[in-house]
């Protein structure tokens, strides 16, 4: 997902918990929200920083594949829509960074860890966006997959994270629908345009399935995160839900999901589908995807080349404050 393979702490049984930890778990089980200044286990705090931080980084880096097409959008309206979407991603990153900061990590620290590679962002953003149809596929599939995870996270136990998710989910539906609208247009266009739409689906289908992360049904890390309600569903549950919802949407477009084994299973009431290539996933996570280097370089360059601007605003704020202080002294 936007946060993949977040390392959680080992699960403790009720007997192993300290009285504080047990009281904390009881509160979560009752559905209470945890707020920043309240006591929380160190593992809960650390896991959340990793998870929210990675989620925020994904929003920020996620601007790059789409930013690639802003200047080349086919119409002025499409350009304005794409700009608005990319601006939303920046906003989502900011909501999430703020939520992470309530846990005692600084913004600069988070950015430093992104730029040094110590913290990750979603694997999906290391794939290139080669044609305009990719803008459709990204909105439809990538934002669609993100929504699967973000909707349940609105009920997460950590107050600031939950509130950020509520705000994000309100805006995310626009992202998916604008993507699907692009796909509809292309799929009903000339044979060449339909071909482009099919090609985009072919390239993004499996990377979109990878977004949910490898199967975690036996993972102890997952179990702890679920007990803490910072993970609401298993990766497999969400992936299945995504496939079930997306396949009919592809059929409506007249496009073919690039999976020959894909088949409705009447007994399960779900589609059977092929797993993505997890070897490829681990390579991308390790930094060996098609665009890892390009994405990180773009982020570092933006940060470094923006330094004079950040410094300038800080200097101006300092001078203006000094001027105001001087003026009030003179007035006395």
């Amino acid at each position: 997902m936007y946060a993949q393979m977040v390392k959680s702490e080992g699960m403790k049984s009720s007997e192993e918990m300290s009285p504080e930890e047990r009281a904390f778990q009881d509160r979560i089980d009752r559905g209470e929200k945890v707020e920043p200044k309240e006591w929380m286990p160190e593992g809960y705090r650390k896991t959340l920083i990793r998870q929210i931080g990675q989620h925020a980084h994904s929003e920020i880096v996620g601007q790059l594949p789409e930013g690639n097409w802003i200047t080349r959008a086919p119409t002025l309206e499409r350009k304005a829509i794409l700009l608005a979407k990319v601006q939303d991603e920046a906003g989502h990153g900011l909501y999430l960074y703020s939520a992470a900061e309530t846990l005692g990590v600084s913004r600069d620290e988070l950015l430093e860890k992104l730029h040094s590679g110590a913290m990750k962002y979603s694997s999906i953003f290391n794939y290139p966006t080669l044609t305009w149809a990719d803008m459709g596929a990204v909105g439809w599939l990538v934002d669609g997959a993100a929504i699967m995870n973000q909707v349940p996270l609105q009920r997460t136990s950590y107050g600031p994270y939950s509130r950020a998710m509520i705000r994000i989910c309100k805006e995310e539906s626009f992202h998916q629908r604008q993507g699907y609208a692009i796909m509809m247009k292309m799929a009903r266009g000339t044979p060449e345009q339909k071909e482009m739409a099919q090609d985009a689906l072919n390239r993004f289908w499996f990377p979109a399935l990878m977004m949910f992360g490898p199967s975690d049904k036996d993972s102890v890390h997952s179990a702890q995160s679920m007990a803490w309600k910072i993970k609401m569903n298993t990766n497999d549950e969400l992936r299945q839900k995504f496939v079930d919802e997306t396949v009919p949407q592809a059929e409506y477009l007249g496009l073919t999901v690039p999976d020959e084994t894909l088949k409705w299973n009447d007994k399960r009431g779900h589609y059977d589908f092929a797993e993505p290539d997890w070897q490829e996933f681990f390579e991308v996570i390790k930094g060996n995807g098609p665009c890892n280097q390009e994405r990180l370089d773009a982020r570092r360059r933006a940060w470094d080349e923006g330094a004079w601007f950040r410094d300038g605003l800080t200097a101006y704020a300092g001078k203006a404050a000094a001027r105001r202080a001087g003026a009030s002294v003179a007035a006395e």
Binding site: S98, A164, Y316
Partner: peptide
């Protein structure tokens, strides 16, 4: 919510965008 800005005026500007 919250955000970072160098001064109050920029905080208002950023809040408008965010």
């Amino acid at each position: 919510g919250s955000l970072h800005a160098p001064d109050a005026e920029m905080a208002v500007n950023n809040a408008r965008d965010v």
